[in-house]
Simulated assay, not measured.
Amino acid sequence: MTVRRVTGETNVELSLSLYGTGRADLDFPVPFLRHMLHLFAVHGRFDLTVHATGDVDVDDHHLVEDIGLSLGRAIHQALGDKRGIRRYGERHTPMDETLARAVIDLSGRPAFVMVADIPDQRIGTFPTELTREFFKSVANEARMALHLAVLYGENSHHMVEGLFKAMGAALAMAVEVIGDRVPSSKGVLE
């Protein structure tokens, strides 16, 4: 599934295969997010390509948010009518001293909760507050309920990395094809 988002602030082209091998081709000027999306792809076994530019001379916010929106849209479109998928996914992921959790419901109803006390304001040049903005954007456009938590930890890098790994693995579980019906008592998932 390929998504293109062009605004006055960013230009994002993103391709996603939910049933891939974990290959990532990432070309955009936010190094820490490139690292995190590589981990997301590997741990979800997704094939992900992101080529993007944006007004990072202002700050990273617009580009991070728009990549998140594009990823969420690609997830939603790739799932179609969601026939046969598991729908729910959950993963606890340790990252050294940190334990992160991601729980997903591909319900068609966007909801986002993140409980994480990340101690540092920046990881390298990356503002840690953008972690929340990125995941919220993904959840809204994917129309998923996404609950993230850092249960404990000390190192900010490990905390954010744990969240991305957990989210990738939880999404891989949720999109696993296990049957031939839409997993809803209503018979439809939007």
Rank of each mutant, 00 (worst) to 15 (best):
V3D: 00
T7Y: 05
G8I: 06
G8M: 08
E13Y: 01
L16Y: 00
L18A: 08
Y19R: 11
R23Q: 14
R23M: 04
A24V: 10
D27G: 05
P29N: 09
V30F: 06
F32R: 00
H35R: 01
H38W: 03
V42M: 04
L48C: 03
T49V: 15
T49W: 00
V50M: 00
G54C: 10
D55L: 02
L63I: 13
I67L: 09
H76P: 01
L79W: 12
L79D: 03
D81G: 05
G84R: 06
Y88Q: 06
Y88L: 13
R91V: 15
T93R: 03
P94D: 14
A102S: 12
D105R: 01
D105F: 07
S107W: 11
R109I: 10
R109L: 11
M114Y: 07
D117K: 13
D117V: 08
D117N: 13
P119V: 15
I123D: 06
G124A: 10
R132V: 15
E141P: 00
A142R: 01
A142P: 06
A142M: 04
R143W: 07
R143M: 14
L146S: 06
A149H: 03
V150I: 15
Y152H: 15
H158E: 05
E161F: 08
L163Q: 05
G168M: 07
A169E: 14
V182A: 00
S184T: 13
V188A: 13
L189G: 01
